[in-house]
Amino acid sequence: MAFDSWQEAIWMGGYGFYVWLSFGVSLLAIAILVVHGLLTRKKLAAMAVQEQQRKQRLARRQQQERAQRKEKGAQ
């Protein structure tokens, strides 16, 4: 190790503020990007479920209408 103790490593010869600020903000920015990607996927999954429910509703409605039309035809 280039430092004698952890305190010295954090102090970075007086440049600790600059070194840790640049590392911290950089890792945070990259973390935000990763999390945003994961959230996007979650949102897409929710949209897929919605889309499926919409399709099912539509299918049910069509079936009902077909049944009603058949009844009318029979009368």
């Binding site: 280039a2 430092f3 970075m12 440049y15 070194v19």
Partner: peptide
Amino acid sequence: LGWGLFYAPPDYQQGDSYRIIFIH
């Protein structure tokens, strides 16, 4: 980054500030 931050030697001119290079 761990190597650069803690194990690489300090720069003879810039001291430890140069460690930003490992991400920059």
